[in-house]
């Protein structure tokens, strides 16, 4: 849930989402849900000529399970705060995951 909250703070920022099928899409982050599904507006595909089916697409929904990386603007990430929150979340649920 931590990264869900984290991504919510990035809504409105320009991000690049790299998918597991190597497609990379840059766009304005519109929304994120608990699965880390992502909605992007005003998108631009990196290496567009390789993906002609994406040429006329202006906004999209990306399923969280197919995302490999999300490239973020460094200025809008407080790594110290994020580290601290991760540590605190770990402390709240000490025995294994969940």
């Amino acid at each position: 849930m931590l990264f869900y909250s984290f991504f919510k703070t990035l809504v409105g920022q320009q991000v690049t989402v790299e998918l597991k099928n190597d497609l990379a899409i840059t766009g304005l982050l519109v929304s994120v849900d608990q699965f880390l599904n992502i909605k992007l507006d005003n998108i631009k595909v990196v290496e567009e000529s390789r993906y002609p089916h994406m040429m006329a697409v202006k906004n999209c929904f990306i399923r969280g399970s197919v995302v490999r990386y999300v490239q973020l603007p460094a200025a809008s990430v407080d790594t110290a705060l994020l580290q601290d929150a991760a540590r605190r979340e770990r402390q709240q649920q000490p025995a294994g995951r969940k």
Binding site: L19, M54, A56, V57, K58, N59, C60, F61, R63, V66
Partner: peptide, 13 residues
């Protein structure tokens, strides 16, 4: 099976 759902911009098309 879903990877992405995109809206087509008719002007762009």
């Amino acid at each position: 099976n879903v990877v992405l759902l995109g809206e087509i911009d008719l002007d762009k098309e």
